Amino acid sequence: MTICFRCDANATIGFGHFYRCLSLANALFNEGLDCVFLLETDEEQIEKRLKVSPHQHIMLSKHQRLDGSNQKENAQQWLIQMGKYNLTVSLIIIDHYQIETLWMTIIKQNAERLMVLNDSGRIWNNVDFIWDASCYYEQEYSSISSTTTLLLGPKYALLREEFQHKPQNQCKPNEIKKHPVLTTNLMLAIGATDPLNTTEKLLSWLISLPLNVHINVLSTSANKHIPPMIKKYDNSRINFIIDSKSIALAMAQQQVIITAAGNIMWEAFSLGIPCALIKTCSNQHRNIELVTKTMKNVYLGEETTLDSDGFLKKLSIITHATQCSMLSQQALRLCDGQGAIRAAKLLASAIGEDNDR
């Protein structure tokens, strides 16, 4: 039984879609299922990740790639590619904002089932599974077919494997109390590519904080802004963590992480690390709405409209020791890091039952 993932990653859309698909693929592989990635990206970092994984990947040439207006042609090209590899597909998992119903209808000729990773909250019909970690309530999907299986809420957040066997939060209460207003370890994690260079803007504001605040910048070599930033901020208070293979361990040593309201947020929550949230793309508003129902004052604003005074004022509230402790407990209640395992077991069971009929 083969499961195909249709996702992409690049400097514009970031790497989040790919990484959460890879987490689910790894969990499905552990359930005895083969996974294949259908990609239209030239990112070297993505190819490296797949080469060391147990998963096959297939690429389309540049002139055949999806541009939003060629749904039919693109789907037909993928059918040809899957035919070349003699793939018998039990399930295609789609994590791509440009793919429309027409594409799915055509591709289903070569797949028994379809699944959509749907953090936009869009209503999809004629799909077999919908994943939506930003939604708690089935009522939001009341208009779809009753035969569609829903995987809803942060308990299905698809985190990297290292967060499934996570280190403990290294931030001890007595350490916080030494600095009752400001934390000692802050992390900036604005995604793998950070196209607007929000990291440097925030860093220029954060260095005005007292000397007891140590700042860690988490990013990747795909972020073109990192090399000049490292040269500019040659400072013992600022540490750059680039292409780390131990992200969970690095994150566990922080008191607060400033991040976009995407997958890194869920990963931090699974460690019990409070987050100060920034909206870096439109689909993140649903995560922000869900989180701020229980976590007050954690949303800093949109990356394009932030100002230094407002940013630092809101951050001082979040980083207060009492607030940090409360937010840490709330974070752990929201996300336990086992979402990929949970989703893989559900999917493997459903596929197995169908094949036994």
Rank of each mutant, 00 (worst) to 15 (best):
I317A: 10
N216H: 10
D356L: 06
W103F: 15
Q64K: 11
E303F: 01
L102D: 11
S23Y: 01
I341R: 09
N174H: 05
I317E: 10
V89M: 06
K178Q: 15
M104R: 15
I317S: 08
N197P: 12
Q284G: 15
E289W: 06
Q284A: 11
T198P: 09
L158D: 04
F129V: 06
L50D: 12
F37M: 03
A75M: 06
S244F: 00
E47D: 01
K231I: 02
S53K: 01
F163E: 09
D307A: 01
P210F: 01
C7S: 07
A250Q: 09
Q254W: 03
S316T: 10
E112N: 13
P228F: 00
I264T: 15
F269Q: 07
T280E: 15
R20L: 03
K313M: 08
A260E: 09
W103L: 13
H165R: 13
Q338A: 09
K172L: 13
S282P: 13
D194S: 09
T199K: 02
L306K: 11
T220F: 03
G301V: 04
E289C: 12
R160D: 07
T294Y: 11
W266Q: 08
L158K: 05
Y137W: 10
N74Y: 02
Q164P: 12
N185L: 00
K172R: 14
P167R: 01
A343Y: 03
A222S: 14
S208Y: 04
E353C: 10
A192K: 02
A340G: 09
I226E: 14
K155F: 08
S219F: 02
W124D: 12
Q45L: 12
P227I: 05
L117E: 01
L346E: 12
P167Y: 00
N212E: 13
D119P: 11
T304H: 15
T305Q: 15
L186Q: 12
L117A: 01
G32W: 02
L50T: 14
L87D: 05
C21A: 05
P274E: 04
N355H: 12
T319N: 06
K293Q: 10
H179P: 15
Y19C: 05
A189H: 10
A276F: 07
R160G: 09
G310Q: 08
Q56H: 11
F37P: 12
I92Q: 12
A321L: 00
R122P: 04
C275E: 00
L60K: 08
A350E: 03
E353I: 10
I13M: 13
Q81F: 00
L60W: 04
I258N: 14
T105P: 12
I242P: 02
W266R: 08
I3F: 02
C335E: 10
L158A: 04
D356T: 06
C171W: 07
V256R: 09
N263P: 03
I123P: 14
P228N: 03
H55C: 03
E100F: 07
T148F: 00
E73G: 13
G352T: 14
S208C: 07
S244A: 09
I226C: 13
A111S: 14
S204K: 14
N235I: 01
C324W: 07
Q255S: 15
M295E: 15
A260Y: 09
C324R: 15
W78M: 05
V256Q: 06
E353T: 11
L249F: 08
E175P: 08
R237P: 13
V89Y: 06
S325C: 04
H179W: 06
K296N: 12
